[in-house]
């Protein structure tokens, strides 16, 4: 008989550390330290919550989409986001979490979602700008996660990144079309860009010198690059795209620095970021209330389906109402 795992904790930890060091994947039911499990569940869950909450600002414009083709594209995009949320909740559940419990933590504020979705979508151009800037920033964050140490998360990320690359292109193509359209459309694109540029930079999180947990996360293969590295990468990629569109990014300090080989950019308003993360953003209460409302209003439906399934299972097993336990008719 082989020894029980619980008898040899040092060896379990060494095996785990070795897997990480060799850049191999941790899979469901592998032993992991409690802190790793908790951190991983929280990161995956918050990512899932972001996808689900993210359906709202974009879903806001489905019924008003100005052409039938744009409407179809937007419905499909929002549907994809629901799917991404489900893939991610599914990955979190392999670590022992339960989706309803994660939802409860979202609506009570104990778990968070990406702060970008606490901003309102005010015109149809916002749909395009979210595709271009917000999905663009999300991809910068997510592509490295395809090499996350946790297998189910890494695989979900590969699938999500593939689908989100279409979303980005759709958003950018909408903006291209608008910039070649009427004067009012061009003004709408510029206005949306002015409102979403800085919040998109905030998506990468606080500066490295204010992120003390980055070191541990990177040691575990949970995080692959620092916030500032990813933010710089996003700026470098996006500036030429803005030029191609013909929009101005709202940062007078943006300029190419040939010594660094990167774009210099202005200071992010970290006070605004902190306020939004703390719950005072323009849409925080609205987004959470909407999610909570849908979930609460749906309770009777979920219960009915569960009740029906139980009745059906009893019928299939040949149990009739009134039977006693030993099978005699009551």
């Amino acid at each position: 008989m082989t020894a029980l795992a619980e008898d040899r904790p040092d060896e379990l930890e060494a095996h785990f550390d070795d897997t990480i060091a060799r850049d191999r994947r941790i899979e469901p039911r592998d032993w992991v330290p409690d802190r790793y499990r908790a951190t991983m569940i929280r990161q995956i869950a918050q990512h899932a919550h972001s996808e689900i909450i993210g359906m709202q600002p974009e879903g806001n414009w489905i019924t008003r989409a100005p052409s039938l083709r744009r409407k179809a594209v937007l419905i499909a995009k929002v549907q994809d986001e629901a799917g991404h949320g489900m893939y991610l909740y599914s990955a979190a559940e392999t670590l022992g979490a339960d989706r309803a419990d994660l939802t409860a933590k979202l609506v009570s504020g104990r778990q968070k979602y990406s702060s970008i979705f606490n901003y309102p979508t005010l015109t149809y151009a916002d749909v395009g700008v979210i595709g271009w800037l917000v999905d663009g920033a999300a991809i910068c964050n997510q592509v490295p996660l395809c090499r996350s140490s946790y297998g189910p998360y890494a695989r979900a990320m590969v699938r999500i990144c593939k689908e989100e690359s279409f979303h980005q292109r759709q958003g950018y193509e909408l903006l291209m079309t608008m910039m070649r359209g009427s004067a009012a459309q061009r003004a709408m694109v510029q206005d949306a860009t002015d409102r979403f540029w800085w919040p998109s930079l905030m998506m990468f999180g606080p500066p490295d010198d204010q992120s003390p947990n980055t070191a541990q996360s990177m040691a575990w293969g949970v995080k692959r690059h620092t916030n500032d590295e990813l933010r710089q990468r996003f700026v470098d990629m996006t500036v030429p795209q803005a030029g191609k569109l013909g929009v101005t990014l709202p940062d007078p300090d943006l300029s190419w620095n040939s010594e660094r080989g990167h774009y210099d950019f202005g200071a992010v308003d970290w006070d605004e970021f902190t306020a939004v993360v703390k719950g005072h953003g323009p849409c925080n209460a609205q987004r959470v209330a909407h999610r909570k409302g849908a979930h609460d209003d749906g309770a009777w439906v979920r219960e009915a389906a569960a009740a029906h399934a139980a009745k059906q299972a009893a019928r299939d097993a040949g149990i009739k109402p009134g039977d006693t336990l030993d099978g005699e008719a009551g």
């Binding site: 469901p28 039911r29 802190r35 499990r37 908790a38 951190t39 569940i41 929280r42 990161q43 559940e93 392999t94 670590l95 022992g96 979490a97 339960d98 419990d101 933590k105 104990r110 968070k112 999180g205 003390p212 947990n213 980055t214 541990q216 996360s217 949970v222 995080k223």
Partner: peptide, 17 residues
């Protein structure tokens, strides 16, 4: 079972990424 459906109660003080 393949996926053990127990709860893992996540402490609230787990650091943000």
């Amino acid at each position: 079972v393949y996926r053990h459906p127990t709860f893992y109660d996540i402490p609230d003080d787990v650091p943000h990424m």
